[in-house]
């Protein structure tokens, strides 16, 4: 967009952050009573809710159940009030289906599904306010919800976006930066082993810049994982204080 500088001369972005700074992260676990696990996550202005049910019996057709592992079922939807213009189709359109598919693949890689054959784990994610980084917020919220539900996982799954402006990689993009036409890389990472569960990139980027961009995203994800770790520990402490005799 003309007239909007994504990176000023002093190195400040639109919202005053530096190039590699993440947005303010807040999360709470165990927000709903019915669900086996739930979490609410705020990453800057992006707000996401995640709810986990499972492992439970496979609903619908019995043929969908796998004999050696659990089926992971994800549904992604955006609230109609989440974007600047009212969203007419909250779920069922192609973008939401694609997002649900990506979430499913990300968590199939991270959850130890071999421990629950012939069962199903449901993950429902809803975006309440969308300001860039939808996929990352969903993944982070779903990770917390899975941890809350006690489902065994290989590691946290942390996701973050990264962009590229004038040879500088930016971490954690907001909506204005994403739609500015520059590159957006979404990365879902298991921080301890640095293995990538999902990588997704749009818009043109010269091949030589790819290593730098991926490095920036990796570093951002690792920083995120520390924050998530803190949230989980705090939650556990609160819970254990209440149950301690």
């Amino acid at each position: 967009m003309a007239g909007l500088e994504l990176l000023s001369d002093q190195g400040y972005r639109l919202d005053g952050r530096k190039a590699t700074e993440l947005r303010k992260l807040q999360a709470r676990m165990g927000v709903f009573g019915q669900a086996d696990g739930s979490a609410y996550m705020e990453q800057g202005n992006t707000k996401a809710l995640a709810v986990v049910y499972g492992p439970h019996e496979v609903r619908g057709s019995r043929s969908k159940s796998l004999h050696d592992r659990a089926v992971i079922n994800c549904q992604y939807s955006m609230a109609t009030f989440s974007t600047a213009e009212r969203k007419r189709r909250p779920h069922g359109d192609r973008k939401s289906s694609e997002m649900s598919l990506h979430l499913k693949q990300t968590f199939e890689a991270a959850v130890l599904t071999q421990l629950y054959p012939r069962s199903q784990i449901d993950i429902y994610v809803k975006i309440l306010q969308s300001d860039g980084g939808n996929y990352s917020a969903c993944v982070n919220a779903a990770t917390l919800a899975l941890v809350d539900a006690g489902i065994p996982m290989r590691d946290y799954v942390c996701a973050c976006t990264a962009g590229f402006v004038e040879d500088t990689p930016l971490a954690d993009l907001c909506h204005a930066e994403e739609s500015g036409g520059g590159t957006t890389l979404s990365l879902a990472l298991l921080p301890r082993s640095e293995s990538i569960a999902l990588v997704q990139m749009d818009a043109r980027l010269h091949q030589d810049h790819l290593p730098a961009l991926m490095e920036a995203a990796t570093v951002a994800c690792k920083g995120l994982s520390k924050v998530l770790d803190d949230v989980v520990r705090q939650h556990l402490q609160e819970v254990s204080v209440q149950t301690r005799e």
């Binding site: 598919l101 990506h102 293995s195 990538i196 569960a197 010269h206 091949q207």
Partner: peptide, 18 residues
């Protein structure tokens, strides 16, 4: 052909390294 990457997408439940 100008060596610009237009999009990357990984799918399937695999773990990749950078």
């Amino acid at each position: 052909k100008h060596r610009e990457i237009c999009f990357i997408q990984s799918s399937g439940g695999i773990m990749l390294l950078k």
